[in-house]
Design a protein around this nucleic acid. Structure first.
Lengths: 215, 215
DNA sequence: TTCGTAATCATGCAAGTGTATAATTAGGAA
DNA sequence: TTCCTAATTATACACTTGCATGATTACGAA
């Protein structure tokens, strides 16, 4: 007999990979890393569990791909904030900070996923490399913004000083981002970004509050 | 026949609990949370696996206890730094910051341990409560030190402002601590504590570098 | 000494895990 | 149309997990 309804559809490999990654991320965001089992991921992506091994060499491989996808998305989101705004360096830096400290970047699932990966960084070389890459990527963007702001303000700075400022600003943003994701109830809305703007301003010796009028 | 060698020794409950917690912590620090199984913990503590259910209501309960033990130890270590130093508020704050950003507090195992627990905070209510407690504990100590410093400097501050400063200082310390533990090679020795001292000083508008001559 | 009991152990179980394998089947090529 | 092949599914396997159960046994009390 001729089939009235195909039992499944063949998709380009890239679509399937992406769908599996999306399913993995949404699952982790909702119920934590330990809920991202092969069966649960497959169910959410509406495919059989064999698909995971077919498109990824292992479940670990899928998780790693999901992590990179996630971190790249976070960096892109905050950068988009900075780019979209006007061209004044101060405003761009302020937008970058605000973007890092408001949803959807600040999110319980995001932080949970990130933390789950941090544990693997300890003993997995590939994961350590991946973390290093995303960390420097974010910090270097921040450093460039800071350099522009300081130059604009006519404050001369050594490379070493600039490096320290970038590390410090990165740290305060990371710290706020993390706590905001883990304990959302501990902070009022916009409180994190307000603190972030003021803190980065204080670290640089420049007032960012005027430029930080959010969205 | 009389037994020449007892097959096991009865220990005070507190000793056993502590031994199990220690075993759990060392295991997680070495191989991550997923390696802290009932059997692995029991093996490391040199007891049968039944002991865990006997001394803790569940494995989750043991994990939570281990987390609290670990975080309390970290807080105690940094506080000891602040207490041991002289009585000048500025010096105490500086010591607190330096203590938070140098070994043994800054340590790959510690951070990995902390990250492992963080993943559980997302979906375990008891864990979330525990995290909240340790977070506020640390932040409140920091806030008290900051208040003393500002009062000493004759800078009036509102409660809200004080809260924001504590959150910001806590964030920068957390961020530096974390990156120092995850990517030790990315920072020179004493670089983290130097940045920490300068950053907290900048946030408060007070120079801490003179008081921060380490140990 | 004897005995009771709580601490400790040894074993088993049901559920869930990632992975391997072979059977299906969609969809393009000949 | 007819095949061929790779995508997809269905199923099973070996292993690990946390927890429960009942048998031991150390050790203080009587």
């Amino acid at each position: 007999m001729s089939d009235s309804t195909p039992k499944f559809k063949r998709e380009p490999a890239e679509h399937r990979r992406e769908a599996l990654i999306k399913a993995t991320l949404s699952l982790i965001a909702e119920k934590g890393v330990q809920a991202a089992t092969v069966r649960a991921i497959a169910a959410r992506a509406d495919v059989s569990q064999g698909m995971i091994r077919h498109h990824f060499s292992s479940k670990e491989d899928l998780i790693t791909a999901a992590y990179e996808h996630h971190m790249d998305r976070l960096t892109d989101l905050t950068s988009a904030f900075a780019e979209g705004d006007c061209s004044a360096p101060v405003a761009r830096l302020a937008a970058f900070v605000v973007g890092s400290l408001t949803p959807p970047v600040v999110d319980a699932g995001s932080v949970s996923l990130w933390a789950g990966f941090l544990t693997k960084v300890h003993d997995d070389a590939q994961m350590r490399e991946s973390h290093k890459r995303t960390y420097y990527n974010f910090r270097n963007r921040l450093e460039a913004l800071i350099a522009a702001v300081l130059k604009d303000a006519g404050q001369p700075t050594t490379a070493q000083e600039l490096r320290h400022l970038a590390i410090a600003c990165n740290a305060v943003i990371d710290g706020l981002w993390m706590e905001g994701g883990v304990l959302p109830s501990a902070f009022a809305p916009d409180e994190l970004s307000e603190i972030g703007i003021r803190s980065v301003g204080a670290l640089l010796g420049i007032d960012l509050t005027k430029a930080g009028q959010q969205t």
